[in-house]
Design a protein around this nucleic acid. Structure first.
Length: 193
DNA sequence: TGTCCGATTGGT
DNA sequence: CCAATCGGACAG
């Protein structure tokens, strides 16, 4: 597991540098994992797309105010889970959304959970990867590395291979919808849409 | 308590 | 293009 201090940095840097790291969920003796190939930064109180915009604190997003490395999972559209890692420090409600992984370990099990055989459809979206790995709100508020969910070092990725683009699905956020806060591994066939 | 809607997905 | 499906945000 990478050190928790890794997340005590500005959110954009964390989002960018998470590309290439391994996301691992330990289920019994099994490791379900993948290489992170797509992330998005959510910049807290000053970001209209962020759940904590304007300092808003509710039952759902309260976990965003916890310390760096805390896991923030919420349900969207009544069906899908979204996985985030809290960044900065306690009281600063910023986070990184994990949007896609390239399947690595436990692929058969992930295919069973998702009921798909195409590798490219297995975890190429925030809801898909949570279903594939078995991540739910039970993980909400836990600290990375303390429970079943961890992030490990992966291959070194050259910064030149990381693309920047606007975030997905936040058209309501006005000007912020154009901010280049989405990071993805250039050429990866496992990114969303 | 009642109404409205989404950091998505998969099928038409 | 559009429906699925429900917890949570917020108004009353």
């Amino acid at each position: 597991m990478i050190d928790i201090s890794y997340f005590e940095r500005d959110t954009k840097s964390v989002a960018r540098s998470l590309i290439g790291k391994k996301l691992v969920h330990h289920v019994g003796k099994m490791r379900l994992s993948g290489v992170i190939v797509e992330t998005e930064a959510y910049l807290g109180t000053r970001d209209p797309a962020c759940h904590s915009f304007g300092g808003k604190k509710t039952a759902r997003n309260a976990v965003m105010f916890e310390s760096a490395g805390t896991i923030y999972v919420y349900l969207i559209y009544g069906m899908y889970h979204c996985l985030n890692f809290v960044t900065c420090k306690e009281g600063i409600p910023e986070a990184v959304l994990i949007r896609a992984i390239e399947p690595l370990e436990g692929i058969d099990e992930m295919m069973r959970r998702r009921d798909v055989k195409d590798l490219r459809k297995l975890a190429s979206g925030p809801g898909k990867l949570c279903q594939a790995l078995g991540i739910t709100r039970e993980h909400n508020g836990l600290l990375l590395g303390k429970g079943s969910l961890t992030v490990e070092e992966g291959e070194i990725i050259s910064p030149r291979l990381i693309d920047k683009s606007p975030r997905i699905g936040i058209g309501y956020a006005g000007e912020a919808a154009h901010w280049p806060l989405r990071f993805s591994l250039r050429g990866s066939r496992y990114v969303s849409r």
